[in-house]
Each structure stands twice: as structure tokens, then as C-alpha cells.
Design a protein around this nucleic acid. Structure first.
Lengths: 209, 209, 209, 209
DNA sequence: AATGAATGAGCCTTCATTCAT
DNA sequence: CATGAATGAAGGCTCATTCAT
């Protein structure tokens, strides 16, 4: 009997995943605001009502999608670099990992920042919100560790990591909204500049002290 | 007779402004996507149809709001600093002017980035779009001029200005979405750090050369 | 003082006529259902409210337009033929006059038959309706007289005239809706056929008797 | 399992039919232009949104109604006469069939002529339009065949059939708009006169040749 | 006489969600 | 579990008409 339950659970999970895939496809095509339950259901090969067997409501889909997006982000960051790398190279590798992830998947950034823009507080339970925040943190943690390995204390490393993230996010936003083209610049190059500048700055500080 | 026309016009303008105020209030409360003509009208004390005496359609309201936002942004930037300031202080003053503006008025940033992200192609005539882009540029121009005054050539100044803007935008986004609190950081302080760091970097470069 | 009143009346009449012209232009362009007070006012160079100084409501415009259309119809019929013509030629001339009028001015036919299709009874006062009916009758009367002149008694002439009108109207309707093209036929030719056939029939009847 | 699907389909069809009935009732009461989705839904005992489970949009309802009207027209024509009838009686029977149909169902005529007059280009796909045109043609075809059986060549038969249709349509229009009463005539009698006259004319032509 | 802002009712349509089957 | 009809609320927008100015 347990085998049957497990099989059922597996099937449920796989169908849920299928629906999330559909949702992601629809979000990609129509944007977050343009997506509708109907459209997601159709894309998944179901009728609207079926969605509610797997998700409590529309925003739960959003939450699941974001959670899954963060898993992929973490996977991308984990895969980057190599334990044997020196700290500076590690910083570069990890930073470019998360930046590259969002550069390649614009909707995942939207998803992450949609929180405030479009969703009422009721959207995400505070609990889930914290959980998602933690996962985001984890994706950025490797950079922070590299910064510490380069000699920064915990506090400074956090500050530099926050600034690094902000810089990347700003560039990504300008990139996704086409604003960066307006400036005749390239987001990826500018990000690389920032990382290199950061590394140099830290090294010269170390030398100085 | 002219007096009458002028009075008439003044009244029209003031009612239009009143509606824009209402729209801004609604945008503040419900977000850009959540705002509706009905809600704006109600906020303004009108019935929905009345709106259309002043704006051709919903996106025209958005456009007007954005235009006006950019005017306020430019005013804030223009008011900052003093012609007599040295270039470094000027950079600091102007950068903090636009950053402070958006820090104080979160929706104005939304508005600006919604431009490309959320508007259907039919919204915002390309003409108006360009015009608004130009106004944004103008608000950032003083920083660019200061950078040139500090010795950068045009190309480098543009690049640094873009990076500066991106950095600020990233911080603002993290601030408005509450993400920055999560990092235990303060957006304004980090921005100031960035500006100071930038100034120091440029000065040391000048010295080196 | 009378002169002033007369001048005023003349001005009122001329502005009313101007509005009717505008209404006709709008009806021509947008169809009867597509026309709006706003559009008519704009076409006339006025604002919507001004219309109501000259017409009680939208349907009054319709009525006035129809009345005026019937005047033009009568004028066209009156101008056709010549008193000296023999009855058969007169029939032909008069019939082609009204037919040609409606063939050249599709909206005038719409106007006349819109009565039932789109307008509620409240539209046209019964009084005005009768009045308009009479004018239509008058436009068709010359044909009826010609038929009498060709030897028909009053009753038969009325019946033949009614059939003649129906035939023309059917052809005009098919013509204006594009249906006649579908049949590969030409409305004007068919109408001429009918008239000729009618004349021949009457002549052969006369011979027989 | 098939039984379930069939039952389901049957129910869907019946509800769709119910909505079409409601639409027809509303069209009857308010005219084609006066009908609204709201009203149709109310008449059918639904809320407006429900309509869209059965029809893509308002004009699809119109199209379905017209299609169904043409089916009834064809059925009426098919049922008329008897294969064994001589051509002249057949012509009379078939002509009276379509005339009688429209005489008894005024809105069906409106519907048919609204096709071109009132529909926006986007309504009614050209495909459906052609299809409906064909069905109208088919309803008139029996008359044309009878005319050929009476000795007319194809071209003449088409012309006479077109004229016959126009005559009937003209009479129907006058009847439905109350205009025929004004002339003190009866549309059905006049139509019968026309058919008889047509038959006599053709027979005398045959004799002559 | 004319303005034009404003209303109130209405339009078609879309949507998330529910629920009987 | 899945369907898909149905709801109820809301969306942007248009219109004839009124009325203070």
C-alpha cells in the first residue's frame, strides 16, 4: 500500500512540476501580469479548475515558481568556480554566476522583485517570504565567503556583497528594460568592470594595511 | 475676452492636475498595475467618464504622470549643488539629488521603469517615449559633466555615469522591495560609499597619470 | 424690431442647416448607427451641447434629416421628365428619378427604412411619421398618375405603383448591401427591365381590351 | 466512456441552443443593434460571462444566429412543393416558401441583410460570410431550377430569379416597416401577383417562339 | 447661443475562483 | 483527479444628455 501512495505522490509531484513548467512558459511569453490561470492551464494541457488541485491560488503558483527559480539560481552558483580556485577568482566566478543567471533569464529577476510591485502583502505568506529570502541569501553567500577569504571581516564582507548585488541588479534592470542600450553601454561588461575594480580595491587595501 | 479663456484654461489645468494627483495617490496605494480608471476617478471625486475629458486613455495618464515625475526629478537635480562647487562636490551633490529623489518617492522609480517593462507597444507613442528618455538623461547629465570636469573623457564619463546610475537603481530597488533590510544594510549609506569610492578612484587615477 | 427677429431666425435656420449638413456627412461616413452627437458636433464645428439648442435629441436630428432627404427626393422627381412627355415616357422618367436618387444616395434609403429597424416607436412622433409618409407618397405620385394616364383605374394604378416601388427598393437594398453583385446582376439594368416590362404589359392589356 | 462524452456534448449543445434562443428573443424585442450581451445573458438566465463559454464574442452569436436562420430557410424551401409538380407550380411553391418564411420571421430578414450593412469588417470571417452567402443561394436555387425547367436558359433564369428575389425583398421590407399598409396593399398578394405575372410572361414567350 | 465638464448608464470582455458532475 | 460551466467583480471605454457658466 505504501508503494501505491508513493507512486501517487510521485505522479502528483510530476503533474505539479508540469504545471509549473507551463506557468513559466506563459510568464516568459506574456509577462507576469499578462499570465492568466486559463492560459497556464491550457499550456499545461489542463482546464482551469485542475490547477486548483495543485495550487491553492494564483499567487501560490507565483511562490512556487519563485522558489524553483531560486533553486536554479543556487544550482547555477554552486556549479560555478571550483573549490581549488583562489578567492579572487572564486569571487569573480560566483558573482558572474548569479549575474549570468539573471541576465539569461529576465523573468526570474522579475519574479524576484515582483514581490512589492505587483503583489499585495497577502500574496506571499511571511513564512514563505522568509524562506525565499534565505535561499536568495544562500545564492549570494559564496561571494561573501570569497570576500572574507580575501581578508574582509564579516561586516565588511556583507557590505561589499550587498553593494555588489545592488550593482548587478541595477545593471540587470537597465538591461531588461532596454535602458542600458540608451546609454550605449553593455551590462555584462560593466558588471565585469565592477568586479575587477572591487578586487583591485581590496587588494590595494590589503597591501596598504 | 482673453481673460475668460485664460481663466477657463486655468481651471481645466487645475482639474487635470487634480486628476493626476488622484492618479498618483492611487498608484501609490495600489501600484501601477492595480490602479484603475474607476479608482482614480473615485479618488478624484469624479465618475469614470469624466477622466476622458482630460486624458485620452489610461496610458495617457501614465505618460502624463511620468512626464511630471521627470520634471520634478530634474527640478530636484537642478536645485542641488551650486555652480561654485568643485567638481567632486558637484558630483556628490547631483548624484545624491537624483538618488534622494527616488529614495523619497518610490513610485516614481516604478513609473520610470514601467515605461518599457509594462507598457503595451501601443501605449506611449514612440515620440513621447523618446521625449521622456531625454528628460531622464538630462537629470543624469550634471553628474556626467562633473565626471568630465574631474578629468574623464566623454566616453569614460558616460561609462562611469551609467555604472553610477545602475548602482543607485539597484540600491533603490532593494530598498523599495525591502530586500536591503534583509541584508542589514542602508541604501543611502551604501550609495554614499559608492560615490566616495568613485571620487577617490578617479583622484588616484589622476595622480597616477 | 421685426427685422432683427427675422435676422435672428434666419441665422438660427442657417446654423440648423449647417448641423444637418454635418449630420449627413457623419452618417455618410460612419453609418447611421456609428454616428454620434459628439461626431456630428465636431463635424459642424460645435461642441456637443450646442446641438441641443437646435434639436431636442438625437432622434430629432434623424427626423429632420429624413424630412430633408424626402425634400431632395421630391425635387429630383419633380425635375424629371417634362409635362409634354407621353405617359409611358413619363412613367419611365419618374420611376428612374426616384430609383436613381436612392441609387446615388444609399444613406437616404437607410434613413427611410431605419424607422423600424433601429428606432423605437418613441423615436418619431406619429405625427411626424405621417407627415414623412405623405412626402414619400408625393414622390411616388407622379408614377401613379402616369399609370392612370396609361389607362389604369385608381386602384390598379396604386397596386402597380406599389409593386414598382417594392421592386426598386428590393433592388436598391441588394445593391447597397452588395448582394446583387453576388448574383452577378446590375440593379439599374434590372430596374429598367422591370419598367419596360411593366409598360409592355399595360400596353398589351390595353390592346386586348 | 463515450456515452459520457456524448451526454456532455449534448448538454453543451442544448445550452448553446438555449443561448441562441435567448439571443433571438432579444433581437426580436430590441432589434439587432439594441441587443447586448447583458440582455441576452439575462434572457437566457445567465450572467454575461457565461456567454463566452459558448461564443467567442458578440459577433459570433450573430453569425451563429444567421447560420441557423439560413438552415431554417432552406428547410422551409426544401419542404415546399413536391418533386412531381410541374415546373410552374414548383416555381410558385418554392418562391412562396422563401417569401413566406421571411414574412413570418421579420428578424431573419434583418439578420440576413445586416450581414453586409452593419457588421464591422472584422466580424464574420470572410470564410463564414461566403459560407452563409452560399446557403442563401441554395435557398433560392430551386426557383432558378424551376425557371430553367420552364424553358429559360441559365443566364435568363438567373436574371429572373434575381428580379424575383428583389421583388420579394422589397415587399417584405415594406411590410416589415409598415410601409405597405400605408399604400393600402398586401405584400403577400402582391408577391403572388408577381409570381403569376412572371409565369404568364414566360409561357407567352414560349408560345411566341 | 454656446461651452465643455460631468453624469450615469451602458457597452464588450476578461479573470480568478468555485463547484456539481 | 479533472472538467468546464458559471459566477461576480472588475476592467477600459463610449455615449446621449444635462447644466452651470
Amino acid at each position: 500500500m505504501e508503494a501505491r501512495a508513493a507512486r501517487q505522490q510521485a505522479q502528483t509531484d510530476s503533474r505539479r512540476a508540469l504545471m509549473l513548467d507551463a506557468a513559466r512558459a506563459v510568464f516568459d511569453k506574456l509577462g507576469i501580469e499578462g499570465a492568466s490561470i486559463r492560459e497556464i492551464a491550457k499550456q499545461a494541457g489542463y482546464t482551469p479548475g485542475a490547477i486548483y488541485s495543485y495550487f491553492e491560488n494564483k499567487e501560490a503558483i507565483y511562490g512556487a515558481l519563485l522558489a524553483e527559480s531560486l533553486e536554479r539560481l543556487n544550482a547555477a552558483v554552486d556549479a560555478a568556480g571550483h573549490d581549488s580556485l583562489p578567492a579572487t577568482d572564486m569571487l569573480d566566478a560566483k558573482a558572474n554566476a548569479w549575474f549570468g543567471f539573471f541576465a539569461a533569464h529576465p523573468r526570474d529577476l522579475d519574479l524576484g522583485f515582483y514581490l512589492v510591485q505587483g503583489m499585495r502583502p497577502r500574496g506571499l505568506s511571511a513564512d514563505l517570504n522568509d524562506q525565499l529570502n534565505d535561499r536568495l541569501h544562500e545564492a549570494l553567500r559564496p561571494c561573501e565567503l570569497a570576500l572574507q577569504a580575501m581578508g574582509l571581516n564579516a561586516e565588511d564582507a556583507l557590505r561589499e556583497n550587498t553593494a555588489l548585488f545592488a550593482h548587478g541588479v541595477g545593471l540587470l534592470l537597465m538591461m531588461h528594460t532596454g535602458r542600458i542600450r540608451m546609454f550605449g553601454q553593455d551590462a555584462t561588461l560593466l558588471f565585469e568592470d565592477y568586479v575587477i575594480g572591487l578586487i583591485e580595491r581590496l587588494q590595494s587595501q590589503k597591501t596598504t594595511h
